[in-house]
Design a protein around this nucleic acid. Structure first.
Length: 631
DNA sequence: TTCCCAACGTA
DNA sequence: CGTACGTTGGGAAT
């Protein structure tokens, strides 16, 4: 097949609204491209290099099935593209849920029922699997054949084959030349383009919630931001967080001593730490009791009972008041802290997750949470504050950190359209005007706002809450409506358009038979099984929270996407996303530009996301050598 | 081996 | 003052 001339491609891209070009990368062989009804297989020894060149010259929005596959391939060659449309990420916005594999994405985009989940691995028992695997694909009256030659990608009922995740399959079953693989890649790209069009239409069909809508519907902008976040997640995983290993080891050794040479020595040291605590409990009373396992909460409770301390559980905050009542309690609390470091953030953790290049790497997901927050593994989202001293800029670089101030109440002001709360959100400190409005002090106002957003159960801020209702009726009404949806199991959408599934559905955690009496319930100890009412109540609170937390996550990702783009010219990188906080690793000579970018990106994000509202968004920006230096 | 719970870290 | 997440170890169920 003839390579596409760049000029020809450029003409097509110019004529395509959104400049969307579907891309499938086949390492070492070439790319499959699709633009506006055309598709082409392009043989090329260095596909990533070609993509980089096209990205510079055409500035397209690359459409791919998912960033992990395609962007991962590019990133392996250190190629980072400007913009993308991620079908998996957009699918999650439109349809919620957990599934985002190609089969599920295709089915949702074409109105088919959700297909059965992909098999973990093919076993001998799969021999009975239908004609799908033979490539016979009858097509059965659907229009799937319209992409000529794609029938082998589908099952008889028009579903995309469940085993097409990733792209190893591209080379499977093709016993011919490289051309065949690339042809397949081109068809795969063409299919992606069709799904994008369907997703685009779906997004545009959603009502734009903004006071003053713009040319691009907010839901489309959400798709852009979520796609960028999916790409960013792959980059974060690739780049890692710069970590000063020495500083980390020093922190760890402060709790558990120096690194030991052998596992046996580790075990012995651990046993010594245990024994030191247990001995303190034994010292007074003669009776020895059996062995005590400090890691077993039941046994710890018994141990505490023996010194006359009777507690419902052994959580640290509950024991802390009794720290001075018995030397054993203090020792145990310190032991807990050390044990946490030893097991979760100890030397083993360093060895597992910090590379030879001093980068801490974990897996990232762009919208794993039920409300669409980013998630990260390897402890990246729950590093003990004390370990921040080990997160350090490399030579010639600085860390530029920014966190959004009071993001959730500000987001509530936008999404609810509450004029009074929006007025309060013009202040640097939102809680000050709220306190004035409610005729209470600032701490009370803060508790009242948080209680309203998250559905307080134990009522201390009751009076302030009632005044909240009078002062900010639309905000409270918005939250109540979400809670109601949760109670009755009705799906809702966030401000940006993400579907939050609340229907007591099949897919999730197996709570199908709501009203039926569970025969096992009689055996269950009383209170162990949450009542139907309690569960619904939980769903109500979840929904109340999800519309705020979810919208805040969308706003954050839109901000992060703008920062990522702005950072490209001077080689800075986002190295950590923490729900409302960004950490950048920047060449020192571009410090000021990066700091300015964080603010300007925030303004441009607010301008489209909260357009027509007077809500102000604020970020606290600081430049540091170590994360711990940021306030 | 799989799953749930307690516990604790972060926002 | 609640929600969300990831990680660990123990123990029960399988």
């Amino acid at each position: 097949m003839e390579p596409w001339s760049t000029a020809e491609l450029a003409r097509l891209v110019e004529a395509t609204p959104g400049r969307c070009v579907a891309l499938v990368v086949v390492r070492g062989q070439g790319v499959g491209l699709a633009v506006d009804g055309h598709r082409r297989a392009v043989p090329c020894a260095d596909p990533a290099g070609l993509v980089a060149e096209l990205d510079r010259e055409l500035r397209p929005r690359w459409v791919w099935w998912d960033a992990r596959t395609t962007a991962g391939e590019l990133l392996a060659a250190d190629v980072r593209v400007r913009a993308c449309w991620d079908l998996a990420a957009t699918h999650r916005v439109l349809f919620g849920g957990r599934r985002d594999d190609p089969a599920a994405v295709w089915a949702a985009a074409t109105g088919l029922p959700e297909p059965s989940p992909p098999r973990r691995e093919v076993t001998l028992l799969d021999w009975s699997e239908p004609a799908a695997y033979t490539g016979a694909g009858s097509g059965a009256g659907t229009d799937v054949g319209s992409d000529a030659g794609s029938a082998d990608l589908f099952t008889h009922d028009g579903q995309l084959r469940a085993d097409l995740a990733g792209q190893d399959w591209l080379a499977d079953h093709v016993r011919g030349r490289a051309d065949d693989v690339l042809d397949r890649a081109a068809r795969w790209a063409a299919l992606a383009l069709r799904v994008r069009a369907a997703q685009d239409a779906g997004l545009r069909a959603l009502p734009d919630p903004r006071a003053t809508p713009r040319v691009l519907p907010l839901a489309v902008l959400t798709a852009y931001a979520e796609s960028a976040a999916a790409l960013l997640a792959v980059e974060l995983e690739h780049d890692g967080l710069p970590l000063d290993r020495r500083a980390a080891e020093q922190y760890i050794s402060g709790f558990v001593g120096p690194r030991l040479a052998t596992p046996a020595a580790e075990t012995a040291a651990r046993a010594d730490r245990d024994a030191a605590v247990v001995d303190l409990f034994r010292s007074g009373s003669a009776e020895g009791g059996g062995r005590v396992d400090l890691r077993n909460p039941v046994q710890v409770r018994e141990l505490l009972g023996r010194i006359g301390l009777h507690v419902p559980d052994t959580r640290s905050w509950r024991l802390e008041p009794f720290r001075d009542s018995h030397p054993g309690v203090a020792a145990f609390l310190d032991w807990r802290k050390a044990e946490r470091i030893a097991t979760t953030y100890g030397y083993g953790w360093l060895d597992r997750h910090v590379g030879a290049d001093g980068r801490l790497r974990g897996t990232w997901a762009a919208s794993d949470g039920a409300a669409g927050r980013m998630t990260a593994g390897a402890g990246l989202h729950n590093l003990p504050a004390g370990l921040r001293v080990a997160v350090a800029a490399e030579p010639g670089h600085v860390l530029v950190r920014a966190d959004l101030g009071q993001i959730e109440p500000r987001v509530l002001a936008v999404v609810s359209g509450d004029a009074a709360l929006a007025r309060a959100a013009r202040a640097d400190d939102l809680y000050a005007p709220v306190a004035a409005q409610l005729h209470c002090d600032r701490p009370t106002a803060k508790v009242a706002v948080l209680a309203a957003m998250y559905g307080q159960t134990s009522g201390t801020a009751g009076a302030a809450l009632r005044r909240m209702e009078r002062a900010y009726p639309r905000a409270i009404g918005y939250l109540r409506a979400a809670e109601e949806a949760g109670l009755v199991g009705r799906d809702i959408r966030t401000h940006g358009g993400r579907l939050i599934r609340l229907r007591p559905g099949e897919g999730d955690s197996g709570e199908g038979s709501d009203d039926l009496v569970d025969p096992l319930a009689a055996d269950a100890p009383p209170g162990s099984r949450p009542s139907d009412r309690a569960r619904r109540h939980g769903h109500g609170r979840f929904a109340r929270n999800a519309v705020v937390q979810g919208a805040a996550a969308e706003f954050f990702k839109a901000w992060a996407a703008a920062v990522r783009t702005g950072l490209r010219p001077f080689g800075g990188r986002i190295v950590l996303c923490l729900h409302d906080e960004l950490l950048l690793h920047v060449p020192a000579e571009h410090t000021d530009a990066a700091a300015a970018l964080l603010t300007s990106a925030l303004e441009s994000t607010a301008a489209f996301w909260a357009s027509g509202s007077s809500v102000r968004f604020v970020a606290d920006v600081s430049v540091v050598a170590r994360w711990s230096e940021a306030k």
